[in-house]
Amino acid sequence: MGERRLKSILIILGSIFMIAFCLMPFLYMLIISISKNPDFLASLGNFQFASDNYHGILTIKSLHFLDYLRNSIVVSAVSAFITVLIAGLAAYAITRLTLLGKVFILLFVLAISMFPQISIVSYLYRFMGRLNWINTYQGLIFPYIAWILPLSLWILVSYFSQIPRDLDRAGLVDGCSKWQILRKIIFPVAAPGLFSTALLAFIFAFNEFMFAVMLTIDYHSRTVPVGIALFQGLHGEIPWGTIMAASTIATVPIVICTILFQRHIIQGITRGAVKG
């Protein structure tokens, strides 16, 4: 048995482990969500299909799951859109315009993104309290924008610096203003980059937990991760089926997006992290 044969066996074993490790909890969630009893493993595989969990989570008003879902989608979408816009403006200035302290801005923003959230959240809590923004959409959207900006800026700077400069020179010759160049030349050319940045920004906002747990009180603004984390049964027993159905509804769209746009997402992650 040569090195090559051994290598391919190791690769196959490794891949099986990799797939099982990554998919198992996800599949477990799906199975529990469609099972009548969450304890079928203990009763030796007595699995019974039931759609009650989905029915319950979607129809019982007092669970507020659909409210959480709507809050999450609105907050994440608005945050992602504004973040990409602001980061796009800044990335244009940093890659194209005469600007003193470009490197300082980039490094400053990088350092900011390393602050632990806990060192921000108590001040934000009282700041939002003074503005009467606790438990509102804007109370989450503003911190989210600031929180996701560093990553978005780094990704977009990396994209914009690859767009040939001749394009904007042509625009300058035609007498466009800088704003017009950005809007009519850079943004359309960088559309894939803007899209993948927005996608990442959306996922980051959708997944955020600590701000949401501190700055929301109830279903008026509470997001899905917090809602699911705080789900408790009415009578002590944790309603696992319902929780897993809610988790499935909340995560499957994101997972499908990830599958559809995997190239964009992977590019976003690597540009945000690796680009120096």
Partner: peptide, 25 residues
């Protein structure tokens, strides 16, 4: 490509929800 997607799935799931799945596990 399929394998790469499998590996990406845990990344896309919100940590709090992932924690709930693990709590059940």
């Amino acid at each position: 490509g399929l394998l790469r997607v499998c590996v990406l799935i845990p990344w896309a799931i919100p940590a709090a929800i992932a924690a709930r799945i693990w709590e059940l596990i």
